[in-house]
Amino acid sequence: PAFQKGAAEHLPNAEITFDRFHLMKLVNEAVDDVRNGEVLTQPNLKKTRWLWLKNDCNLKVKQKEKLQALLKDQNLKTAQAYQFRLTFQDIFTIKNRHQGATLLKAWLENARTSDLPPIVKVAYTIMNHWDGVLRWFESQITNGILEGFNSLIQSAKAKARGYRTHKNFINMAYLILGKLDLRLPT
């Protein structure tokens, strides 16, 4: 909301794009919320958080086996939420706006009628930002690079426990992000 408000005030002609990373983050949080709610009645879900949130290619063999065993349980709400996650992720591999919109509408209809409140909430959030979400299919814009820069700067700030002046902090940011080679010639 703060970003949207700032963009509206200072860049009134700008069109906001909601990138795939942040949309997937919303869906992942919903899956984890479903798991957290269900773990009290399903003890086999304890310590399985990352099974549901990682991509299949990043899971180890034992993790894949455990995930497959959990997916066979038709009554697990977490497994249903996970299927919503996988389908949503697949939609964002499409480059065509029209085709993406069609698939996303179908996903939203299924999500809204699911008995999974966190998934329903994500569906309504996406509907409320529909134009910005669809704009991603055209632009493919992401702010992942900026997120990475921010992470490096925050890490440097934490290591130093503060800088004496803003100028020193800015110089450190340039030094870190500039990837300068400061080794002496040999």
Rank of each mutant, 00 (worst) to 15 (best):
V61H: 14
K64I: 12
Q42E: 12
Q74M: 10
E38I: 07
R35K: 06
L67C: 09
Q42P: 03
N44S: 09
G37R: 00
I16F: 08
D19Y: 11
T87S: 13
L71S: 00
V39C: 11
A69G: 06
Q63W: 13
D33S: 13
Q80Y: 09
P12R: 10
L67I: 13
G37S: 00
L11G: 04
A30V: 01
K66T: 14
N28I: 08
N44G: 00
L67E: 08
K60P: 02
P43V: 08
E38Q: 08
Q80M: 14
K54M: 10
E15H: 13
A14L: 12
K25Y: 06
G37H: 01
Q83F: 05
W50V: 06
L71T: 01
V34M: 00
E29I: 07
Q80G: 12
E38H: 07
T48Y: 09
W50N: 14
A30Y: 01
L71P: 00
L59N: 06
F21R: 04
T48E: 10
T17V: 15
T17I: 10
P43W: 06
D19R: 07
Q89Y: 06
F84R: 00
V39R: 14
N58F: 06
E38V: 04
N75W: 06
T17A: 12
D56K: 10
Y82R: 06
F21C: 07
A69E: 13
Q80F: 05
D56V: 06
E29N: 15
N36T: 09
K46P: 03
E29W: 09
D33I: 02
R49C: 13
L59K: 05
M24G: 08
L51C: 04
R20T: 07
D19F: 11
M24T: 03
L86Y: 05
R20H: 15
M24P: 02
L86Q: 13
A30N: 02
K54S: 11
E65G: 03
L70A: 10
V34S: 02
P12W: 09
D56W: 11
K66C: 04
K60Q: 12
H22W: 10
L45S: 09
V34W: 01
L51Q: 05
D19M: 04
K60R: 13
V27D: 03
A30K: 02
L70W: 00
V34Y: 00
D32E: 14
K72N: 11
T17F: 00
E9V: 04
F21T: 04
F21K: 01
L45G: 09
Q42V: 07
T87R: 13
N36M: 09
L26R: 11
L59F: 08
L26E: 15
V39F: 06
